[in-house]
Amino acid sequence: MLRMIGRRLAAALPGVIGVIVVTFLLNRALPGDPAAYFAGPAATPRAIEEIRVKLGLDKSLPEQFGLYVRDLVRGDLGTSLTTGQPVVADLRARLPASLELTLCGLLLAIAVGVPLGIFAATRPGSWADHIARVLMTMGNSMPVFFSALLLVYVFYYLLGWAPAPLGRLDAFTPPPGSVTGSFLVDSLLMRDGTVFLAAAKQLVLPTATLGLAALAPIARITRAAMLGVLASDYVRTARAGGLAPRTVLYVYALRNALLPVVTALGIVFAFLLGVNVVVEKIYAWPGIGSYALEAVMTSDYAPVQGFVLTMAMIYVALNLLIDILYGVIDPRVRIET
């Protein structure tokens, strides 16, 4: 098991290197003079020259790359012109908001999508199956910003059930003390029910948006995998052995069907990380996506770069986690390595 994890870590390394190289190249591809860019619009030529030296832009490309890696290792992603803070500090402050939202969305999608897929697969051709398939096709075609806005219109404007889409907490609730950065977890740790409820309320619509977006692919894959597994030889064996339907469905079919689903979770998560940006914009969610968008508006590249890098690293880490989870479920992976 440990050896497998080690191998997975090694396998993830090229991806990490690729991510660092690409972000470096993108940085150098910025239009105009990067020094002038980083110095800001009001800088004098002298100041620009100083910045050029300070940034190492007078050196050769490989040397610059070396410097870039050195800064990364030190945890230095530059300074945001907008906030005046180090980008790393900004990201650290805002990451929990993004993660809390994305994970809630993913969990919701799994909690609804997997049962929906199973339901459709165990009743192929039934009306339930047809409805599920239509939902899946519709879900795949729905632009996230569109579904988000529809949700806001219906549940905030028309029905008034949801709070205004303005961030993680309403104006009257103070944020809980920061332990993990997740308002839900922190408020629970503080045993503060009011804050928990307030945070949960704010989370409902954005989570639903993300969940809806990820629902279709998860349900689709679950359904296809389940259909394949239910027609497999070993499920037939379980049936011929007279095992209870529940055992057949959950122990024999579902566990095998989950393998492709777990693999697909990585892609779905990557998709959600992208969707997250849009959702944060619509719900004024103070995460790293909206941080990056604010920086875009002011042509401030360092935060964008930090954002891309962070997202890519989260994705790499998640893929690692999925590989390990896969190994836990599938003995063929666990033992053969």
């Binding site: 991510v19 998709f271 990380l273 940006v277 890519a312 994705y315």
Partner: peptide
Amino acid sequence: MAFPLFVL
């Protein structure tokens, strides 16, 4: 593929 594509 190491990036979330929309973010890239």
